[in-house]
Simulated scan of single mutants.
Amino acid sequence: MRACFAAVTALALSLAAATTPAAAQSAAKVQSGMLVCKVAPSVGFVLGSMREMVCEFRNTSVQPYVVKSRYKGTIARFGIDIGVLAADTLAWAVFAPTANPVPSDIAGSYVGVSADAAWTIGAGANVLLGGSNNQIALQTVSVEGMVGADVAAGIADLTLILLPN
């Protein structure tokens, strides 16, 4: 299982580097906060999956942190996705052109690569680019913790909708 996960993760990171637009790779960005999402359970349907989520955009402090804005959204994966996962939490470092992006700049669509593997417990990683002006990059802070049985790799599509305060 570890060899499978290592291969899937290496493939995802290679695809991320190859599919990241040159402008996004060279544009100067600063870490402006963390996006922490509670994700609903899922069942993989061989060719993809979709999960609902609620997210908080927080400052970079661990505790106490400040919630800057809230979002609801979905994350879909297109590719190989076989298995069942319990509810979990995803966390990304948010990189933007400024240290204080407007909350509506983070809302929007993101696309990138994703890979994970789990047997009882597991881990995954993903890298996404997008936002309202395609200027925001989401990078996995640490490998996501998962509970379930799953093997997945493919293209990830994340949509975030800003919630009123």
Rank of each mutant, 00 (worst) to 15 (best):
V94G: 00
Y71D: 01
P97L: 01
D81K: 07
A17S: 08
A91W: 08
S14Q: 11
F78Y: 11
V67H: 13
I82S: 14
G108F: 01
V54N: 12
A18C: 10
I75G: 01
V102W: 09
A16R: 08
R70D: 05
D88V: 02
S104P: 12
A107G: 01
G73C: 12
G79E: 14
L13T: 11
K72I: 02
S26C: 13
V66C: 15
K29R: 15
V62W: 12
Q25I: 02
L13D: 08
P21M: 12
K29P: 02
E56I: 03
P64Y: 10
V62H: 11
M34G: 05
Y65D: 14
S42Q: 10
S42N: 06
E52A: 10
T60V: 15
V30K: 08
L11G: 05
P97F: 11
N100K: 13
Q25Y: 01
Q63I: 14
A40C: 00
Y71N: 01
A12P: 01
Q25S: 13
P41A: 02
A91Y: 05
V54G: 10
G48F: 04
M34S: 13
A10R: 09
A40Q: 06
V54P: 02
V94S: 00
A99D: 07
A76W: 02
F95D: 00
V54D: 13
N59E: 09
S69D: 08
V62P: 09
S69G: 11
D105C: 10
L35K: 01
A24Q: 07
G33I: 08
L35M: 07
V43Q: 03
A18H: 05
S109T: 15
G108T: 08
M50T: 15
V39M: 03
V54F: 14
A93F: 03
G108M: 05
P103E: 03
G83K: 00
D81A: 12
S49I: 00
G48A: 08
G108L: 04
S61Y: 04
A22R: 14
S32T: 09
L47S: 12
K72T: 07
I80M: 11
Q31V: 09
T89F: 08
V30A: 03
V94F: 00
T60P: 06
P97N: 09
V62N: 08
A10M: 15
R58G: 07
K72R: 10
T74W: 04
T74Q: 02
V102E: 11
G83E: 00
V66Q: 15
M53F: 10
A40E: 04
A96S: 08
L35A: 03
C37V: 01
V43I: 07
I80L: 13
V36K: 14
F57T: 07
N59Q: 12
A12F: 03
M53Q: 15
V111N: 02
T60C: 12
P103L: 04
V102P: 06
V66K: 14
V102Y: 12
M34H: 13
G108H: 02
A96E: 05
A96K: 05
A96V: 00
M34E: 13
S14Y: 12
L85Y: 04
P64C: 14
V46W: 09
V39N: 05
L35I: 04
Y71A: 02
A86N: 14
N59H: 09
I106H: 00
M53T: 04
I82P: 13
V67A: 13
A86Q: 10
V46I: 15
P103F: 10
L13I: 10
F57L: 15
T74L: 01
D88K: 09
L90P: 00
E56A: 15
